[in-house]
Design a protein around this nucleic acid. Structure first.
Length: 95
DNA sequence: CTTGAGCGA
């Protein structure tokens, strides 16, 4: 499941957020949105978690929690991944 | 552009 995280302090990067969510389960990917030019964090990002239950649990526990000086916002992302089938076959293309 | 609402290329 995909999770939207906002109000992240600018000095906090992907690793920090990852560690936070790994407290609740396996994290597939973390993406902090950054300014392409400067590379500075926009203060929000996305976390994708393996298990939906753990994801919901993470949202429940982490939303409103405080990192440094800011209360972060954690909710379900608008656009969820296509489908969560455990048997994701690799897409092979031979050249 | 020493900046804080919002959902990414």
């Amino acid at each position: 499941m995909k999770i939207f995280v906002a109000n992240i302090p600018f000095y906090v990067g992907g690793v920090g957020i990852r560690q936070l969510f790994e407290l609740f389960g396996a994290v597939i990917a973390v993406k902090i949105i950054t300014e392409p030019t400067t590379g500075k964090s926009k203060g929000f990002g996305f976390v994708e978690m393996q298990d939906n239950q753990q994801g919901l649990h993470a949202i429940k526990e982490l939303d409103g929690s405080t990192i440094g000086d800011r209360d972060i916002v954690v909710k379900l992302a608008d656009q969820q991944p296509e489908e969560i089938h455990v048997h994701k076959r690799p897409r092979i293309s031979l050249r």
